[in-house]
């Protein structure tokens, strides 16, 4: 089972990771980070294959992927 680590404090809530996740595992949360953005969260974890497309599309290198 893969694992995502999301550095929420760096997330700018652009949504590109969500747009490209083939399994719909990511969502914008209703939390606020110190920059005032609602960071993305890894929600649908059991569907995640660890393909790392989300991490590659993220302009801010917020997501790290482990398998």
């Amino acid at each position: 089972m893969p694992k995502l680590e999301i550095r929420e404090e760096r997330c700018k809530s652009c949504g590109l990771c969500i747009e490209f996740c083939p399994k719909g595992c990511l969502e914008i949360t209703d939390r606020f980070n110190p920059s005032g953005y609602n960071p993305v969260g890894w929600m649908n974890t059991e569907e995640c294959t660890g393909c790392a497309i989300c991490a590659r599309m993220c302009p801010d290198v917020v997501i790290e992927v482990f398998k």
Partner: peptide, 20 residues
């Protein structure tokens, strides 16, 4: 095993770039 992470040569700081 880490399959994706920050490259070493990219300094670990927040960028000033706009979202997206």
């Amino acid at each position: 095993k880490q399959v994706f992470g920050r490259p070493e040569s990219l300094v670990d700081v927040a960028s000033h770039f706009c979202p997206g």
